[in-house]
Structures are given as structure tokens and as C-alpha cells.
Amino acid sequence: MKILQVYRSEPNDNVKTLVGILNRDRDADEFSLNVESPDYDTLVAKIFAADKTVCWW
């Protein structure tokens, strides 16, 4: 299972805890949208490479 964690803002402690549990024993990747110019091409490639994407607040 490949899981992609996407962050729209800096993750808080709750999000970090949930991500830790969701990523356990899985092939995990991440992407931050919380930058001036996100590379959307890379994000879309990561989404299609993953089985599941979670996009946090």
C-alpha cells in the first residue's frame, strides 16, 4: 500500500499522530502545498503513483 500525505498547512500534533499511525508499515510519501509555488505536476504524479492520498488542512 502506497500512501501519500499532502499538507495544506503546517501539520499540528493531532495530524502528526494520525499520519504516524496511517503510515505504519506502509510505503509513505508526502507533499507540501504550503509553499509559494507548489509543483503541481509532481503532486499529480505522486497522487497517481499512490494507492491513497490524504490531503490535510
Binding site: T17, I21, R24
Partner: peptide
Amino acid sequence: EELGEAMRDADFIIP
């Protein structure tokens, strides 16, 4: 922690 474990079986997670 229970929520995290339960969501491992989720098809979709929507913040």
C-alpha cells in the same frame, strides 16, 4: 489513536 487505527481501513479520509 483509535481513530488512526480505524482510518487505516478507510477508503477515503476527508479533512
